[in-house]
């Protein structure tokens, strides 16, 4: 059973004529790693935004556990159902790394007595030590911010984790670490992991690969 279903999804930005996405259909299941590839400007981030519930598609539908995102409370969906690793990180820059994680857990209503120590542990897992965790995001490098973004996406234990170029700012070693975490998330914890990427390394670990071109999405590799 697919956790996220795209059904003939079309989208165009307000005030533009061209359909960035023109009738995309796909199914994403729990326990798998998906890679979406495509040229720059082909609409990958746009598709991710729709899957993340930031906006709704113009035509077609996106279903989460069989329910149309247009019809459910997308605030709750974003808070609990999905974790997003943005290409531009989108962290609260004047708060510390650990504050970002705790805030996300609070918004999602995570019921943990000690959110702070959970946040430190999570950051540790993506390679952020305690000292770095207490620095303001503004004062972190791109790679560090990327990792904080990853930790935040995982902080509320969502069904789906989507990532937009998550390894773009990382060196080879950390890329391997992060990919390890993401594959383990799918294969060990049974989550649905969707990664937009240019990286060969990412595609090599993906269970399925989709390609976007000209507003259409086609399967490149399927099991």
């Amino acid at each position: 059973m697919s956790v996220l279903t795209l059904n003939n999804v079309s989208y165009k930005y307000e005030g533009t004529k061209k359909n960035v996405l023109a009738g995309i259909s796909a199914e994403f299941e729990m326990g798998k790693v998906y890679a979406i590839v495509g040229k720059s400007g082909s609409g990958k981030s746009t598709l991710l935004s729709l899957m993340a519930g930031l906006d709704v598609c113009v035509n077609g539908e996106i279903m989460y556990n069989g329910k149309d995102l247009k019809k459910i409370d997308r605030d709750i969906y974003r808070a609990k159902g999905i974790g997003v690793i943005f290409q531009a990180f989108n962290l609260i820059t004047n708060a510390t790394a650990v504050e970002n994680i705790v805030l996300s857990m609070n918004i999602s209503g995570v019921n943990d007595k000690n959110k702070k120590s959970y946040a430190y542990a999570l950051l540790e897992k993506v390679g952020i030590d305690c000292e770095t965790a207490e620095r303001k995001v503004l004062k972190l490098s791109g790679g560090e911010q990327q990792r904080v973004g990853i930790a935040r996406a995982l902080s509320h234990n969502p069904d789906i984790v989507i990532a937009d170029e998550p390894t773009g700012n990382l060196d080879k070693d950390t890329e391997a670490d992060v990919l390890g975490i993401l594959t383990s998330l799918a294969h060990d914890d049974g989550k649905c992991v969707i990664i937009v990427t240019h990286s060969r390394k990412v595609t090599s670990i993906a269970d399925e690969i989709w390609g976007i071109n000209d507003g259409k999405m086609i399967p490149v590799k399927q099991q």
Binding site: A52, L54, D75, I76, Y77, R78, A79, K80, V84, F86, N90, L91, I92, L103, S104, I107, S108, R152
Partner: peptide, 8 residues
């Protein structure tokens, strides 16, 4: 926007 994206 970030807060809203996190579901606030």
């Amino acid at each position: 926007g970030v807060l809203r994206a996190m579901g606030m």
